[in-house]
């Protein structure tokens, strides 16, 4: 089999190679990159992977769709978790439905703006994100406690047999998403919608509900991530979701999902998340300032897309 052809159909391999190269380089050059830091990398990558898997649904719907409200959902859900749970497991039971509702409602609002009012996804979700940020600003004023529900803390920080629980969660989620995409009719509808909404519609695919569901998935996963993140970082703070704006899109495309939709890989998104986190870790170990880290992340994502744009046929809506 032609190796080039194989690479083109298994685009996640690029992210895999990148992960391997950085891993070997870090292990060889620094004593600091031990098993302990590996667990740290895995944890950060898992938090990123949860939102990135949601972003992947939004991107897969095609037409340049993307969910830029993810950072806003993460932050607001973290605040909701902290404020409503009050640091008890009973409180967590109160908070969870609200957190899930935030995800569902925001996803639905995005879907209505995009499908009913035909506002480009990028503008609609960006605007929704700003509204959410302002809501978090208001929540921040009511913020009284830094106590975290014990159950949530266990889920976000425990290491059964040395493996971070959150990693197991992210892996399980990725498997579930992979099955959903690859083995169900919803997955096939999603890919058909992403490749050509018009053709999918003519073929009887419920394009609008498929797209709406994708944005709801994205919202819910971001909301769950925000709740877990509040337990992991020990509180909620403004702009805590902000890094995920670029990173969620980045992990998806670096993992080999096509930015114009119609093809998605959960495994690739997992690898993409790992690669982005490894890049950030490398820069931190090298002692580069935060400004450089922003610049490199932006540049890596542009570079991957530029390579994909020239190497693969691009679909425009």
């Amino acid at each position: 089999m032609n190796p080039l052809h194989w690479l083109r159909t298994h685009r996640w391999a690029f992210a895999g190679i990148g992960v391997l190269v950085l891993w070997v380089a870090l292990s060889a050059t620094t004593a600091q990159f031990s098993l302990a830091s590996l667990s740290g990398v895995a944890t950060s990558a898992s938090f990123l992977a949860v939102v990135a898997l949601g972003q992947m649904f939004a991107v897969a719907t095609g037409g340049g769709n993307v969910d830029l409200s993810i950072p806003g959902v993460v932050t607001l859900s973290a605040f909701a978790t902290m404020i409503l749970s009050g640091g008890t497991d009973m409180g967590l039971l109160r908070a969870l439905p609200v957190v899930l509702a935030i995800g569902v409602v925001i996803g639905a609002v995005n879907a209505i703006l995009i499908l009913r009012l035909r506002i480009p996804a990028i503008i609609a979700t960006l605007a929704v994100g700003y509204v959410l940020d302002t809501a978090s600003l208001l929540a921040n004023r009511r913020f009284t406690t830094f106590a975290i529900s014990p159950a949530l803390r266990t889920l976000a920080t425990a290491h059964p047999a040395g493996v971070p629980a959150i990693l197991l969660l992210a892996l399980a989620l990725a498997v579930a998403v992979a099955v959903l995409i690859g083995r169900t009719s919803y997955g096939r509808w999603l890919m058909a919608t992403g490749q050509s909404a018009t053709a999918a519609d003519l073929a009887g695919v419920p394009v609008a509900s498929v797209t709406a569901t994708a944005f709801v998935f994205s919202g819910v996963l971001a909301a769950i991530d925000g709740a877990l993140l509040s337990a992991h970082t020990g509180g909620a703070f403004l702009e805590m979701g902000r890094p995920y704006l670029l990173q969620s899109v980045g992990a998806v495309v670096v993992g080999g999902t096509l930015i114009f939709g119609g093809s998605a890989t959960a495994f690739g998104t997992l690898l993409g998340s790992l690669l982005l986190v490894l890049i950030v870790t490398t820069m931190q170990i090298a002692g580069l300032p935060g400004g450089v880290q922003d610049m490199v992340q932006g540049a890596v994502i542009i570079a991957v897309l530029a390579a994909a744009g020239s190497g693969l046929s691009r679909r425009t809506a």
Partner: peptide, 11 residues
Amino acid sequence: LDVAPFIATLG
């Protein structure tokens, strides 16, 4: 490089 405008400028 044929990068979609919203991704290029987000980068």
